[in-house]
Structures are given as structure tokens and as C-alpha cells.
Design a protein around this nucleic acid. Sequence first.
DNA 1: AATCTTTACAACCGCCATGTT
DNA 2: GAACATGGCGGTTGTAAAGAT
Length: 337
Amino acid sequence: MVVLFSLLVDVFNSPLTIYTYKLLIICPSLTPTPHLLYLPSQICNSHSHLSLSLSLGLCLLILIEEMGAQVRNYDCATYKNEEDTDMRKGPWTVEEDAILTEYVAIHGEGRWNAAARCAGLKRTGKSCRLRWLNYLRPDVRRGNITLQEQLLILELHSRWGNRWSKIAQYLPGRTDNEIKNYWRTRVQKQAKQLKCDVNSKQFRDAMRYIWMPRLVERIRAATGSSAGQSTAYSSCSSNHNDIPANSEAAQINDPMMEWVMPEPSGNSLESLDTQVSPVSDVTEYQNPTSMQTGLGLYPEDESDRWAEMEMQMQSSILGDGEALESLWNEENIWFLM
DNA sequence: AATCTTTACAACCGCCATGTT
DNA sequence: GAACATGGCGGTTGTAAAGAT
């Protein structure tokens, strides 16, 4: 940031007043919308596409191009360059990001094919849409999937399957792509290692009766005893009205889901976010059969419910075939963390 | 230090639904 | 109603970075 502001001070102290270059500042942590500044050509020397990219953790600074060219790009009527029809593929550049961000800031979302053309991007409308929704959108939440979010993903997936966009609706700031990636890299991989299908009853039961209670336990441990009634959803959503009263999610009524999606009440995102540790803590893993009520793991008023679940698990899982303990032992429980 | 393997995730693809002409 | 354009979704792939050997 120091470097950034130092640069800006230099810019504005310049004796030149004819600004011929445009500077786009994208700094989501400071402002939700990009800021435009105009730079003297002196700053840019002879470069027509000088690009300064300062990754300072919080701020990305991009110098785009000559204003004249930029203005031309926004004039759809004059867009007629045939050679622009060859589409670019692959990773987006900071310049492309800046152009798309600026275009959306001015014209809004939607009409992506037109956006791609008018902004002068050699990208398909689809590509622009995806880039915006999955990466550039200001409210995209980055960083590790929290424990609460993990719990919510597991629960919602058990209910809705691979309906990623639907699941994503309940994790504000997370994209369907991100959730899908999480599922594939973490959950499916684990199922593969356990040599069972991710959709098998065996794996689903293991998730439901071991993994998810374990997550609940960890969330409670991380958020303190007062968070006993707090939940993944309540912690992830900054606006509980996001869940329609008659929605599928609101109508879920099983014990686990009540942990995940309770009555809307005011636990804030900030207070309950628990980042997932990249390192496992297998040493504190408890055998599922030891996760009994009365050990302080669950709220007292939940004890009967949990005991019931425990019995349910014993009879429905352990009774037929491979025991959960052997399926989900300390060697493979690591990935839950 | 070099090479190989694994992981995480961005991006693309194909299919489908919907809207417009 | 057919043809086309567009957007949304889920599946898959490519690849950079990190980790292991």
C-alpha cells in the first residue's frame, strides 16, 4: 500500500495536467467498485500498454492503456475489427480482468456476448460471464473453506446431490465452481482412497455419522461454548433472510440439519468463521463410538437426539458389513481437518 | 538440486432451458 | 412453431504451485 500511495502521490504531483492514460484501481478490501484515475502520458513513457501490477495483498493496481483506445473499445458501433474474431483461451490477464471489471461497473452484468465485443475482449461471452462470476465479482469470498462451510456443503450435498449452484446459494460469496472443486478434491478423493463410491451408503453414512458430528464438535470447540446453537448457515450468511421461509432448506428437519440451518438468529460471519487448518490433528480424533452424549460434546438438550442418532448408527451401519471404525480410521480421518 | 507426483483451482466444454425473432 | 442466440449448469481438463523423493 505504501508503494501504491507513493506512486499516486507522484502522479498527482506531476506538473502535467493532460491525463492521457487511465488507471484502474481494484481494491475490494477498501472499496467495492473499481476506481479510475487518469495519468499523465509522462508517467507511461512510450509504452502503449504499460502494465503495473502490484500485488500487495490488499490491492491490485493496473495501468491499462491509452484512453483513446479504451474509449474506442466502449463504442460498440465502431467495433468492426475482423481480426478480433479469433478468440483467446486460457488464463485471463490482469489487463483483461481490468477491462471486464470496468465494463461491468459501467454497464452492469448480463449480455455477456455484447460485453465481450464492446469491451474489446477477445473472449467468448461465456468466458466473460464465468470469469466475472467466479473471480472478479466483488463479493466473491476467497480463502479456505471454513468448518461451517464444510458442514453445510456436506449436508446440502447429501440432500441435493451435485446441484452445485443450488448449494452455492446457501454459501454467500462461494461459487458453485469452488464448491464443486472442494467436493472433487477433498470428498471424492477420500472416497476413492477408502475404495468406496462417494454415493455409496457406506460412505454417506460415514460422512453423516462421523465426519459431520466431528465438524460440529470442532466448530463448537473453535467458537466457544456459547456457540452451541450456532451453525454453519448462520455463520456463513450475513443475511438470514436469504433463506426463504418455505424453501427446501428451511423445511429440512433432521437433527444434523438443525445444527446447520437453524432458526435465523444473529450470529455473525466474523465471529464464527473458523478457518480450516491445513494440517490434521489426528491425535485428537475420537473414535465415533466414544462420541457419546454426556461427554460435553453436545448441548444438553441435544443429548437425547444424539444418543438416538448414535443408536441409529450402530444398528444401521455397524450391523451390516464393514464397521465404520475400519472404514474411517485414524489413518484416513486426517483429511477432514 | 533435479525430477516426479500430488493438489488446488481456474477455465473450458457440451448439454439444456429459456427467450427472441 | 422453427431457428437461433444466450445464459446457466455440471462435468472435465489443464496447469501452476507445493510437496515428496
